[in-house]
Design a binder for these strands. Structure first.
Lengths: 336, 336
DNA sequence: GACTGGCACTCGGTATCATCGACTGCCAAC
DNA sequence: GTTGGCAGTCGATGATACCGAGTGCCAGTC
């Protein structure tokens, strides 16, 4: 494939087509482009260039005698050529106000953040919470609930509380639970929960049965949905598509937390900020794009936020919103 | 309004219309009804009766020369006349298998339960978790996260863990946090969190500042979204309607946890198991019906589960599924 | 008196067809 | 290289006719 650099005029035309299509969701014709302020040539010239752009794979025609719409390659070029986007005054004010007002539960805050981001962009928003691995253990406790049921509770430095139900083979009184907790605590406080498997036995058999239960409960759910993910504004996806079947399949994806989490991670791992259509790697999301950004707590990558919208989403605005929110969220969480 | 008891034939006809409409989502005509095995008269007779049923408000015609569809009154009659519904063997087996396999986190289990219920019925499912008020406090702890930030953690007897972030006006060392925790613990363990406001001060001013922060943090979020609610299978609502705007507005409702919780509570408070269309009290849900049931843990009402579907939902199946799941869920939670 | 078959009538849905308009591609002229 | 002009394409829109499912009513039958 020969890639020819787009000359300045084609650049303007392509940009005009993408912007117009994002705005109207209608195929855009040469005369519309010619009328655009960025383009000063006649519609016939635009037509010639648009034919070239189509041949180069940036545009496509739904059918002959219709206008052009951008291909994924067209969107990709558009996004890469985008100037550093910035949020308008009212929106940034809204973000600032939100994080000033925000307080209390970290989960609650993250959940509210999805609503903020969704409200800003009019698309669905996703926030992946700090991974447990991230926080160092501050406190460990084991509380008896029923004769043979106990609850293991660990408080992490980042405000996350991890808990596991322990089903014990035999009755265990509070004293035994407490000494098991103290033992685990000695070995785990200060390190992360990932260190759980290396906790040694205490020596006393009856205590160790509780310790073993706790350690294996921690290991149990480690691989699976270890991250908390919050999704907000999914209903806005209904407004983005007019085929009810598209809506259904996108919503079904958003309900699978595992898929959502790995989608965001994959995109980020590939070094991308935006994944367009099939770039998401998920077949059902061929009509969607994702904008992601990590957020950092005390200088360390703690989680991810993202926006899911139709491929013809307003990338500039979404990028700006995601950037500002991830920035502010990280800052807010850093200050505790 | 004169309410005349429906004679046996009208009963059969009305039932046939409702069942047929639930099945096909198409207005049903007199000949279809006459062909039904429950009705042995000619279509002309059916027509006469259907005209009466329409005059009595059980049926309506979308337009002249179309078949009839049930009104809300028609559905109401149908539901009230429903025989005790029971779940088919395969489905009850599925429920039993689910709760035998279920273990671990209570929140996780409740969330999974929405998926179970949604999968059984093909509609959206809602599970409202045990209220905090329900559980007695078993353990109280205050863990320092940052110099001026601490986390209040209370473990309740029903496995629920309540936590609140405390933002302190001054630095407080671990010892002070611990003695505040011990103080609160003394007064709260054994009672419910609702008793928090009556916790007296300890006497030592620096400790009391922490105690006050904890008590007010508990009071703070008490009125608001005090219940945890889980929603699953919302995407299935997209399959239930063909107007994308209906889908959007129903999904928007499901995203408002407060609205969902109070919807279920209202329905239950009115002594209903099923709310049909406008009976839900929510304008946007005029095309929807809700089937609810409380579940009991150790003999006490702990939470609610429900199914949200279109008004022409399969009431019999939904009622059976909700009944069985609420029963099994309560039993599962009771045994710890 | 209750039920039924028959009949005229209604009306939404579908198919057909012509028209319209927004496009394009191409070409000759500038 | 650019442009105006022009023929041609094709989806969208609207008018028209037709079909069929369904109704209400009525006269006839049991």
């Amino acid at each position: 494939m020969v890639v020819v650099m787009l000359d300045e005029r084609k650049t303007s035309i392509l940009r005009a087509v993408v912007e117009e299509y994002i705005h109207t969701a209608q195929p855009v014709g040469s005369s519309h482009v010619a009328a655009s302020s960025q383009v000063t040539v006649s519609s016939a010239t635009v037509r010639n260039d648009m034919a070239t752009l189509e041949a180069d794979g940036y545009l496509q025609q739904p059918h002959t005698s219709a206008g052009r719409i951008p291909t994924e390659k067209g969107y990709r070029w558009f996004v890469d050529a985008l100037a550093e986007p910035s949020l308008d005054r009212a929106a940034s004010q809204q973000v600032r106000a939100f994080f000033n007002r925000a307080h209390g539960e970290i989960e609650q805050m993250l959940d509210d953040t999805t609503r903020l981001l969704s409200g800003l962009t009019d698309y669905a928003a996703v926030v992946v919470g700090p991974a447990h691995e991230g926080g160092t253990v501050r406190s460990v406790q084991i509380v008896g609930l029923a004769p043979r049921v106990a609850l293991f509770v660990a408080v992490l430095g980042n405000g996350v509380v991890e808990k596991r139900t322990l089903e014990l083979a035999e009755e265990a009184d509070e004293a035994r639970l407490a000494s098991a907790a103290a033992h685990v605590s000695r070995h785990l406080v200060g390190s992360t929960l990932a260190a759980a498997p290396s906790v040694p036995l205490a020596g006393a058999p009856d205590v160790d049965r509780v310790v073993t239960a706790a350690v294996s409960a921690l290991a149990d759910t480690e691989d699976a949905e270890t991250d908390h993910v919050f999704v907000g504004g999914a209903s806005r996806m209904a407004a983005a598509f007019d085929a009810v079947e598209s809506v259904r399949s996108v919503l079904a994806i958003l309900e699978q937390q595992l898929v959502v989490v790995s989608l965001l991670r994959d995109v980020l791992d590939r070094g991308l900020t935006v994944a367009i259509g099939t770039e998401t790697g998920i077949h059902r999301l061929a009509e969607c794009s994702v904008v992601v950004a990590p957020y950092e707590v005390e200088g360390e990558r703690a989680g991810t936020i993202g926006v899911l919208g139709p491929t013809r989403m307003n990338y500039s605005h979404a990028l700006a919103a995601v950037a500002v929110v991830s920035n502010r969220l990280g800052r807010r969480l850093s200050e505790g």
